[in-house]
Design a protein around this nucleic acid. Structure first.
Ligand SMILES: [Mn+2]
Ligand SMILES: [Mn+2]
Ligand SMILES: [Zn+2]
Ligand SMILES: [Zn+2]
Lengths: 136, 136
DNA sequence: ATTACTTTTGCAACATTGTTGCACTTTTAT
DNA sequence: ATAAAAGTGCAACAATGTTGCAAAAGTAAT
């Protein structure tokens, strides 16, 4: 809610050390309108770090709940900043033309489930594939 | 619909050659209640084929629309037989306890979407994570 | 500022999976 | 049975995931 936090603030509020790689990744994701692949983040930030460091940074940020990963049909993995609220349903839009992915406002989606007896829902992911506003 | 087709019938109806690997994969998936990983199919069928052949077989069957792949959070890929009807929305249940995945009857799910202007939906995937009837 | 402690990083190394080219084998239609 | 078309196994390489370990950097106390 309210003003956008800085990467430093985010890291310290999660009790994570403020390191160059973490700040870089966070800054790129904070600026980006859409979810980014590891490679895309590396490309725009200048490939400054070892790939293992990058890998571990993404794992750390994800484990802390700061970012989340989105897996696409084509096995591509994209990352996006998580907003604070932990909804049961989270949804993404994937443009089949430009391949961009963006998190959707969760109350844009209303899902009703009628599961067979014995099944219990815990969380719900929705992936909408289609054409985005830019490509339309 | 109605009686279950044999793997040979399925293959010929899609104008695909009837080969040992394809029949094996199809038979395993036809028998299975739940979606299977490539490794699981190999394991139960005795690892008779080269991994490249297996890989290509899965691609071929998927391209033909005979099977479809389901990608999980943990980057695992599972495969399941596709039924004939091509619905816009397809949903899966993923048990977080036993890791089994199954296709859901699509009319068990009702999704209402309110996308921002300019966005057009083409297809919709729903992944329900929870506890399955066996693990409950 | 220096020190001591904790965490992160880079590098090597290895596993798994995806992917292609090519020669050989199998399937399918004549 | 023969020939054309398609599939298979193998080698080879790319991309990604994953761990151990010693060096480097961050953090907090002196
Ligand atoms: Mn998201
Ligand atoms: Mn399915
Ligand atoms: Zn687009
Ligand atoms: Zn289960």
């Amino acid at each position: 809610m309210s003003a956008k936090q800085s990467s430093e603030e985010i890291l310290s509020s999660h009790k994570l050390k403020s390191t160059a790689c973490r700040k870089t990744v966070l800054n790129e994701l904070l600026e980006s309108e859409t979810a980014m692949t590891e490679q895309e983040i590396k490309d725009v930030s200048g490939n400054l770090f070892d790939r293992v460091t990058f890998y571990r940074t993404l794992r750390t940020l994800e484990a802390a709940g700061i970012i989340h990963s989105i897996i696409l049909d084509n096995n591509q993995v994209k990352y996006a900043i998580s907003d604070m609220r932990q909804d049961t349903v989270h949804s993404h839009f994937h443009c089949i033309k430009c391949n961009e992915v963006q998190c959707l406002n969760d109350d844009a989606i209303d899902v009703k489930i009628a599961l067979p007896p014995g099944f219990k829902t815990q969380s719900l992911d929705v992936m909408i594939n289609g054409i985005c506003n830019h490509c339309n």
